[in-house]
Simulated assay, not measured.
Amino acid sequence: MISRRCLMAALAATPALARRARAATWPERPVRILIPFAPGGAADTLARILSESFKEEANGQPLVVENRPGAGGTLAAASTAQAAGDGHTLLMGDIGANAVAGALFPTLPYAIDKAFVHVIHLANLPMAMIAHPSVGGGTLQGLIAAAREKPGGLNYASAGPGGASHLMMELFNRLAGVQIQHIPYRGGGPVLQAVLTNEVQVAFSTVSTTRPFIESGGVRAIGVGGRNVVPMLPTVRPVAETVAGFEAETWHGIHAPAAVPPDVAAQINRVFNALLRRPEVLARMEQQSAIAVGGSSDAYAAFVRGEIDKWSRVVRDAGIRMTN
């Protein structure tokens, strides 16, 4: 006869066993990852790199890349936030939809600080501060001196109002004590062309985009946005060595709807950490100048909270507002 004590112990263990079984079977079907941008960009490329090896780590199930561009990334974010909490719809999160949008837009269809489980920090994409070779002797110190000598006399390009390249230059303006004027363009290609032709004098752009033009001498890399030198541009020093407190990189991570249970989120984290250890994934990411990060959900959640605080201050200080 089963004793009452044994029966109670078995009943108490049942929910934990169910949770472990549920997590072990994730994914049970193909997983959708929504990309807030059109095909061909950094986020799309990263997702497709991960999708190539996903089956090997995820019960043989595929990772289906679905592009959902529009509204500064918030369309894809809203769709993910409203998806079922079973872990089969994920978001390729970024600085826009998951850190800046709450300060930029008067209303959002999701609560930026509550709508998601921040599952894992996938990668950082280093940013280069590029300038036309004729400006400031091709150095960051020279650019700052020229900007201080003639406030408002220099222009910078961004890939669009409210985007990362806009906010990074506004942060630079504030910390460096300069007034370089904003000229928005439609996308990263026109930004690069504007610096190449000296239509504007300076901009932030991803290392992956600018490296061929840096190597050809068409533009000069006068700093990198992160706190460390990046392997792709080993002779270019961090902006922070000249402008104290400056740090700016674009980043991507996996976000799930807030309704996803912790045990399933932990399994998603394990799968993507395993992908970031695979040599073929790391090699492809290196080709795209992406630096793998990985780690725990708690670490990524803390990182995202810091990004929300940091870029919200930049938006407020610069008086940047977008309409829905």
Rank of each mutant, 00 (worst) to 15 (best):
I2D: 11
A10M: 13
L11R: 09
P15T: 08
A16T: 13
R19I: 03
A23W: 01
A23H: 01
T25G: 05
W26Y: 13
I33E: 08
F37D: 06
G41E: 04
L46T: 00
R48K: 12
S53T: 08
E57L: 08
V64C: 05
V65A: 03
N67E: 02
R68V: 15
A71W: 09
A71S: 15
A83Q: 04
A84D: 15
A84S: 14
L90P: 00
N98K: 05
A101G: 06
A101R: 00
G102A: 11
Y110S: 13
A111Q: 14
D113N: 13
F116E: 01
N124T: 12
N124L: 10
M127F: 07
A128R: 00
M129S: 05
A131P: 07
H132Q: 07
V135R: 09
A147H: 07
R148G: 06
R148H: 11
P151K: 04
G153P: 05
A157I: 05
G160S: 03
G162A: 03
G163Q: 10
G163R: 11
S165R: 02
L167V: 02
M168L: 07
A176N: 00
V178C: 10
I180M: 07
Y185N: 12
R186Y: 10
G187I: 12
G188P: 06
V191R: 05
L192E: 01
V195Y: 06
E199V: 07
Q201W: 06
T206S: 00
V207Q: 02
S208Y: 03
T210H: 00
R211G: 02
P212A: 12
F213Q: 07
E215L: 14
G217N: 06
R220W: 06
A221G: 12
A221I: 10
A221S: 15
G223N: 04
V230G: 06
V230F: 05
P231F: 09
P231T: 11
P231H: 11
P238D: 09
P238W: 08
V239W: 01
V239P: 02
A240Y: 00
E241C: 09
E241Y: 05
A258S: 06
A266M: 04
R270V: 12
V271L: 06
N273F: 04
R278Q: 15
P279G: 10
E280R: 15
V281R: 09
R284V: 11
M285R: 08
A299E: 14
Y300S: 06
Y300E: 10
Y300P: 03
A301T: 13
F303M: 12
F303W: 12
G306R: 02
I308A: 05
D309Q: 10
S312A: 15
R316A: 15
R316M: 11
R316D: 14
R316T: 15
G319F: 13
R321C: 04
T323G: 07
